[in-house]
Amino acid sequence: MIAIGMWTSGEQSARSAAVELYDQLDFAIRNQREKWDASEVEEACSSCFWPIATYQAILLHVISSIIMKGDGLVNVHLKATIPATDLALLTSLVGSCRRLGMFFYPNILAKYSEADLPSFVWVGIEEVKRFSIALYKLCAKLSSSTTEDRSLITARELQFPLPSNDQLWNSVGKDEWDVNAKVEHMVSLKDDLQAKWISKSADILECLDL
Rank of each mutant, 00 (worst) to 15 (best):
C207I: 08
T81E: 14
S199T: 08
L60S: 07
K141P: 02
E184K: 03
Y105S: 01
V76S: 15
I2V: 09
Q32I: 00
R150L: 15
W36V: 03
F103R: 02
A110F: 04
L193S: 04
P106I: 02
P83L: 05
A140N: 14
A57G: 08
A195I: 03
E20F: 11
T85W: 08
S119C: 02
S145A: 09
S96G: 04
E11V: 02
C207H: 09
D26S: 15
E126D: 10
T8F: 05
P51H: 08
W122Q: 00
G95Y: 01
C45Y: 06
G124R: 07
I133Y: 02
Q32T: 08
Y55H: 11
M68K: 10
I52R: 07
S145N: 06
S92R: 01
H185L: 11
L100N: 03
A3L: 12
I204G: 00
P161E: 01
A80T: 13
W197L: 02
V74C: 08
G173A: 11
S16H: 06
L25E: 11
Q12H: 14
S171L: 09
G173W: 10
P51E: 05
A134P: 01
K137S: 07
Q32E: 03
V183I: 06
N75A: 11
L21V: 09
A17K: 12
D71A: 15
Q12T: 15
I153Q: 01
P106Y: 05
A115F: 04
S143A: 15
K196D: 13
T85C: 10
T154D: 12
L60H: 11
I82F: 09
L138E: 05
D192L: 03
W169R: 07
A155K: 07
L210H: 14
T147K: 07
D23C: 07
A88Q: 07
L90W: 06
A80V: 10
R30K: 08
D26Y: 08
I108Q: 09
A38V: 03
V128F: 02
P83K: 12
G72Q: 13
A28R: 10
E176W: 08
S143V: 12
S16T: 09
N170T: 11
A14T: 06
P163H: 09
D116S: 13
A134S: 15
F160R: 00
S65W: 13
L193E: 06
W36A: 05
L168C: 07
